[in-house]
Design a protein around this nucleic acid. Structure first.
Length: 127
DNA sequence: CTGATGACGGTGC
DNA sequence: GGCACCGCCATCA
């Protein structure tokens, strides 16, 4: 992950900003974040998350994959932490360890919010 | 500059 | 429902 200064990259800042908009008790998928942030591919979101500093104020734990599960990463401990944080926010997991996206998925930012951040809401149609 | 890698997603079998 | 492959593009060696 290299604590390099990739935060200087606008795309990263954009992703972080969107993630911060996710309300407590809700989750969003990498694809959704990427879509809202204007990324052409969800991989960029995952890459951006991987570059987050330890004491970040970005609620990275609210970002999960399209399967509604916590993405397995090199350090399994972090996965457990993420699961715990979500449970503390009232999110429940199934036996398979996946979240019910149909219930907890974030509806996304408002049209107004997108305009304020210079994004083009026309392609998003808000959910 | 070239090549490898990655917290993903969608499609096909 | 699960597994394998491909594409996507920023970052790093």
């Amino acid at each position: 992950m290299t604590k390099s200064d990739h935060q200087t990259k606008p795309i990263y800042q954009q992703i972080y900003t969107v993630v911060k908009e996710i309300p407590v008790g809700r989750v969003a998928t990498y694809g959704q974040i990427g879509h809202v942030a204007g990324c052409s591919t969800p991989r960029m979101v995952g890459y951006a998350m991987a570059g987050l500093p330890k004491g970040t104020d970005v609620p990275w734990h609210r970002v999960i994959n399209a399967a509604g599960k916590i993405s397995p990463r090199g350090n399994p401990i972090s996965s457990e932490i993420q699961r715990q944080l979500l449970q503390e926010e009232g999110i429940t997991f199934t036996k398979s360890g996946n979240v019910n996206l149909n219930t907890y998925r974030w509806s996304g930012p408002t049209w107004e919010w997108l305009v304020e951040h210079g994004l083009d809401p026309e392609g998003l149609i808000n959910r």
